[in-house]
Design a protein around this nucleic acid. Structure first.
Lengths: 126, 126
DNA sequence: CGGGATCCATCGTGATACTG
DNA sequence: CAGTATCACGATGGATCCCG
């Protein structure tokens, strides 16, 4: 029973289940994209804005803060003027990229099937 | 540059990027849990309710509909009374479990680190 | 430049009641 | 049993202005 039920409401009613906890964070619209953008190395705030393309300052700021809080991203402030802030992945963040890549690869590979399924669903499934 | 930027706003401004498209679906609060619950085999509606434990009927219904539409789940209705409806994974759904397991395993393994990072963040990081 | 604060629109989710 | 309909609310995300 403990086989695959890591996703149950709790892992046995202790903590709120590791997977849910993690997914709640990286399950938002931007976290994965930011992590991906940082894979290439250190980036500054506006650099990330340009890389992501269509994220607002607020969401980038918020996402980075959450990722920093969870230990995925490191934030480095240089006491200069004008201010300079750099973001890069921690070892934890890097390690997360591994399973993430698996997910991305799957999505890239099977996106066609999903689209076909949607079409088929509408045309005549029911 | 096309190396890892599969997550950019689009894969080159064509479709809304496969990864975002997939993530928007399975990134909600329940999809992964439902898929996991179905790994064991065919299940009925109320069976899933019990397995998930704390999902509402509405959300289970909605989640299943989306998963069915995207081709992850197959819905089989038996014209009986009282009604009987069974859900199980399609091949696509099964194939998705592979990368998902990777993510689950990571979450299970590194959850401690994330918790520690959060604590450390609050106590004195800034 | 790198955000924080505020306001607002929308979405996701839950609770409840009702239906076939 | 297996949902659907309705209501309500908090979270999510965008836009804008402001500040050091």
């Amino acid at each position: 029973m403990a086989k695959t039920n890591l996703l149950a409401a709790d892992g046995g009613f202790e903590q709120p289940c590791p997977i849910r906890d993690v997914l709640d964070r990286i399950g938002d619209q931007w976290s994965l994209l930011v992590l991906d953008a940082l894979e290439g190395g250190t980036k500054r705030f506006n650099e990330l804005m340009r890389t992501l393309g269509d994220i607002s300052k607020q969401m980038l700021s918020l996402t980075l803060k959450r990722l920093e809080e969870d230990g995925f991203v490191r934030r480095t402030v240089y006491p200069e003027v004008p201010p300079r802030v750099e973001y890069d992945l921690t070892p934890l963040g890097h390690s997360f990229l591994v399973p993430m890549k698996g997910l991305v690869a799957w999505a890239d590979e099977h996106h066609r099937h999903v689209c076909e399924a949607r079409t088929h669903y509408r045309t005549g499934a029911r």
